[in-house]
Write a protein that binds this DNA or RNA. Structure first.
Lengths: 199, 199
DNA sequence: TGCAACTCGTACATCAATGTTCAAGTTAAG
DNA sequence: CTTAACTTGAACATTGATGTACGAGTTGCA
């Protein structure tokens, strides 16, 4: 986030940003996150308008559409990191996974959309290197469950991770389509995954 | 397909197209289908080039990007219709569904991508009215399985349909990513859905 | 208070895609 | 063989998005 490559403005001597600049950046990232994770084909102008900021101001902080996209992904990774650390992953893996799921499935789904919608703006490699650590945490948890004997062992680990994201995505879509309520969704998702993961 | 609204060229008296015109249309639809179902943001020029046809020729048959997209969807619906009729859906619903799945999951997945990638070109209503009949067939089969007692009854029917498409999509992605082979995929998909649907 | 950082609107150059027009050539079909 | 359908490239108008330049105003901070 503070790597200096994502901002084009002059910046004051100490390398510090002025308070109003930081506020602008925050507004841009917040609005951008909402837009980018809701639909594809978002324009820089739209993000600026949604953030209540001039288009030029945006370009002052993010020199290109690509840099904006990267910054959005970075922020998401930070949020995911924070969310992960707020969940208790001790105890039996199946119960731990259930807790993670109920806490984070919104976030998982948003990240997935975001990832898809910036696919044309940043290189797959960049995306992969940054996204892998997140996947690996879920992977490790499932793997632990297999060792403990609470999860099945006859399906590839990567496939189990994929189904988790895939069904979380599907659940979110069903809410959008009005075929599930926000209360039903986590229950149904949890039930489905339990059936799918049971040995 | 022959509704006359999708072509702008003069057309001869009998309402018939000349053989070379029909050939062009076929090439365009074939190439368009391949492109549109492989990635988003396809341009008309790309389709024309991939079809080995002049851009003007394409516009002669499909007056706008939207009409082209509609025609692509129409063709897919026809193909799906044909594929469905080639599968034996008699007998126990779970076995029937398994046959359908193994025969059609490629097609399901392609349709899903296509649908997603034309979402900006045609209205959701149009898409919905045309796509619903297809979903309804799968729905009916699953519903029959519930009546027969071979499928679980504690999850919404719409959710079960969604998971089917969702996992078919995921399986195709895993092949693309190189984490599954084309031979493994149907097996794993089938196994997963059996676990998910079992009462 | 004063200065540098910051914001903003307007304007401009560039680029890529869409859709149209035209004139000349090619081909199917009666 | 003759005609009308069809194809084609080149050229053009339009639109929307990206990114830059400028000049005037605002605001944080020392």
């Amino acid at each position: 986030m503070d790597n200096g490559k994502t901002t084009a403005s002059a910046r004051r001597p100490g390398g510090q940003r002025r308070a109003d600049a930081q506020r602008s950046i925050d507004k841009i990232l917040t609005a951008g996150l909402k837009l980018y994770s809701s639909r594809p084909g978002v324009s820089v102008a739209e993000v600026a308008e949604a953030a209540g900021v001039g288009r030029v101001t945006l370009y002052g902080h993010f020199p290109s559409r690509t840099e904006l996209a990267k910054a959005l992904m970075e922020r998401t990774f930070e949020e995911t990191e924070a969310a992960w650390q707020s969940v208790d992953t001790s105890g039996p893996a199946d119960e731990a996974l259930d807790r993670v799921l109920r806490e984070q499935w919104h976030l998982m789904e948003r990240n997935r959309n975001l990832r898809e919608n910036v696919l044309g703006d940043v290189s797959p490699q960049w995306l992969r290197t940054r996204h892998d650590p997140i996947l690996r945490r879920v992977e490790a948890l499932i793997s632990r469950g297999q060792d403990e004997g609470v999860f099945r062992n006859d399906l590839p680990l990567s496939w189990m991770v994929t189904t988790l994201y895939s069904l979380a995505h599907a659940a979110a879509d069903e809410i959008t389509a009005g075929r599930l309520t926000a209360e039903q969704a986590p229950e149904i998702l949890s039930t489905s995954l339990r059936s799918l993961y049971r040995p």
